[in-house]
């Protein structure tokens, strides 16, 4: 190794270490603040306490918004899983023109500014008379969750060997049983990881949800931003820490299912 290569290599590792610290800083800070006794975000906190967590049950607006977010995320993920999987099967097995274009179209909501998509939908929903917050949120969130399902299930299906189904049928399975016993288990990791990312995307969405909330129906991110604007205190850090815990659990499940390296495939 020449001197230049040694310097370059040292620089690469130094930046990598810096990036680990940089990326994890907001998460660590949030958790530290949530367990601190100080109300003004002093770091390191003067003492440790659970007082912000104890305030959670009585925090107005938190639980209804969490319930709304969970309902919308669960239902929109389920709808996307069904529609997205059917579409992925068509794209992999079908022999019609424009399959690439359809795949790009279904993933495109990820690439466009959420705010613009939200405004367009708001005006569209108004035009057809859909005004209630909850159904609007559900209809909009299917668009948010669909790209994750289509992308992951499409990738998994294009690796799936469809002759296995014929093999199962030769061995006496009915078509439905062959699908259930052969295809569903092979695709299970793809279903679970795509469902997980779709669910989290729906839970976290702000720029589209903001157009479909009213005084009674808010999703968690909308309610949290309102807390931040109205009374910034470590209760928000405690809520955030809960969401971080959720992400850690999702990461562990993802690691068990497909491995960390596969989660990094892009």
């Amino acid at each position: 190794m020449t001197a230049i290569e040694r310097v370059a290599s040292a620089l690469v590792w130094a930046i990598a270490l810096f990036a680990i610290v940089f990326l994890l800083t907001p998460l660590v800070v949030t958790v530290a603040v949530s367990f601190g006794s100080s109300a003004v975000f002093t770091l390191p906190p003067p003492g440790w306490s659970m007082r912000w967590y104890n305030q959670l049950p009585a925090t107005r607006g938190l639980w209804p918004s969490l319930a709304t977010s969970l309902q919308i995320a669960t239902l929109s993920t389920l709808v996307s899983l069904v529609l997205g999987t059917l579409c992925a099967i068509a794209l992999v097995r079908g022999r019609f023109a424009g399959r690439d274009a359809i795949a790009t179209f279904l993933v495109s909501p990820l690439m466009l500014p959420g705010l613009v998509v939200g405004i367009a939908m708001l005006q569209g929903f108004k035009a057809v008379g859909l005004r209630e917050a909850w159904p609007s949120l559900l209809v909009a969130h299917v668009v948010i969750t669909m790209p994750y399902v289509v992308r992951t299930v499409l990738a998994a299906l294009s690796l799936f060997d469809f002759t296995l189904i014929d093999a199962a049928r030769t061995l006496g399975c009915s078509y439905g049983k062959a699908l259930r016993k052969v295809m569903v288990p092979a695709l299970a990791p793809a279903f679970l990881t795509s469902a997980m990312f779709a669910f989290l995307a729906s839970m976290d969405n702000y720029p589209i949800s903001i157009f479909f909330t009213d005084a009674w129906t808010k999703t968690l991110p909308i309610q949290m931003l309102q807390f931040v604007e109205e009374r910034p205190d470590p209760v928000i850090a405690a809520i955030s820490a809960g969401l971080i815990l959720l992400a850690v659990i999702a990461l562990i499940i993802g690691d068990r299912l497909v491995g960390l390296r596969r989660l990094a495939d892009f």
Partner: peptide, 23 residues
């Protein structure tokens, strides 16, 4: 490295922006 990159991806932008307000 993998954890530091993938974990923040599954955390909402409101949580991270709020954390940066503190940072």
């Amino acid at each position: 490295l993998l954890v530091a990159i993938i974990l923040p991806l599954s955390i909402g932008v409101v949580v991270k922006a709020f954390a940066w307000q503190i940072v």
